[in-house]
């Protein structure tokens, strides 16, 4: 059986920039075959120049990506996806504006062949704090934030730097398990949003063309206690958006480490996976020396 497909969930209220982000990811997929599921009333808001062909249920996108919509039944849409001839590398679910991401993640986890791989919640810097106390949708928005592994602050250019700082402090309370990142015009690096792909070192070496983020690769000696390392890498003051890599544990087994925001997961690695752990974060927040130093304490 092939390895389970990683599924990244993109949530956030209406107008936060989810669609812009999805289009940006498709534009910068760089060889990764993404399958995007959208649930905004079945609209397929994919930029026209990206579309290669449009069928009844599915849009083919340049670079081997596809996009389809789902109505009220996400599981059925994912099961349909699993039946496609060409297997995607990764699934991206763009939630509806009122969806609760943890409910979506739980549903994904039920299906054989899929594994949730991070919840990214888009935040409209201008409106979110007002929306979070709205009588009708306030609790929906706070529930979305609680579920976030990463919050992407969008439209930061429309507010002052002081406002962004204040917003980041606010998010530490409202989204306690998330790392928050600032996205420029709805754009955030693919590796950050979706993770590092099957071969993290290769992804890293493909470069960071947009210059928005930095990364380092940690060497991994054999016989590593992955849990101790993971706890250090997900605790302050280290600020890692995502990390992925492979190591040999104390029993000599090859393991994979995934980090999204403050959450980590250790699982069996595929055979012959290359040793080493790649950590990425946003320029300005990311301190490679600190990460190396912190990691060395655990190694």
């Amino acid at each position: 059986m092939p390895e389970a497909l990683p599924v990244t969930i993109i949530g956030g209220y209406l107008g936060a920039g989810k669609t812009t982000l999805v289009n940006h990811l498709l534009r910068t997929a760089n060889g990764r075959k993404l399958a995007v599921l959208v649930n905004e009333f079945g609209a397929l808001p994919i930029d026209e120049d990206l579309i290669e062909a449009q069928g009844d249920d599915l849009i083919s996108i340049a670079g081997g990506c596809i996009c389809c919509s789902f109505g009220s039944d996400l599981s059925a849409a994912l099961m349909n996806l699993a039946e496609l001839k060409v297997r995607p590398d990764q699934v991206v679910i763009e939630c509806s504006g009122v969806a609760i991401p943890s409910a979506i993640a739980a549903s994904v986890s039920l299906l054989d062949g899929f594994v949730p791989d991070g919840t990214v919640v888009m935040v409209d810097a201008e409106t979110i704090q007002e929306a979070a106390v709205d009588e009708y949708i306030g609790d929906t928005i706070t529930r979305q934030l609680v579920d976030a592994d990463l919050t992407l602050i969008n439209k930061a250019d429309l507010v002052s730097a002081a406002h962004v700082t204040q917003l980041e402090t606010w998010l530490r309370t409202l989204a306690p398990s998330a790392r928050s990142l600032v996205a420029e015009h709805g754009k955030a690096p693919l590796d950050m949003v979706l993770g590092l792909g099957a071969n993290p070192r290769e992804s890293q070496q493909m470069g960071h063309a947009d210059g928005l983020f930095e990364s380092i690769a940690l060497p991994c000696p054999s016989s590593l206690n992955g849990e101790i390392l993971a706890r250090k890498l997900t605790s302050d003051p280290v600020h890692i958006a995502r990390a992925k890599g492979f190591f040999v544990d104390e029993l000599g087994a090859l393991k994979a480490l995934h980090i999204v925001g403050r959450r980590f997961d250790i699982s069996d690695a595929p055979e012959n996976a290359p040793l080493g752990i790649v950590c990425i974060g946003l320029k300005g927040q990311f301190d490679g020396d600190l990460i190396r130093k912190t990691a060395s304490e655990a190694l």
């Binding site: 009220s72 599981s75 549903s107 986890s109």
Partner: peptide, 27 residues
Amino acid sequence: GVNHPGISLGNDGMPMGELKGPDAMTP
């Protein structure tokens, strides 16, 4: 190891057979 709010687990850790909500029901 099934972890879903719509699926209750028995003392043996296995699903009890009750599936709540379309996403738990569909599979």
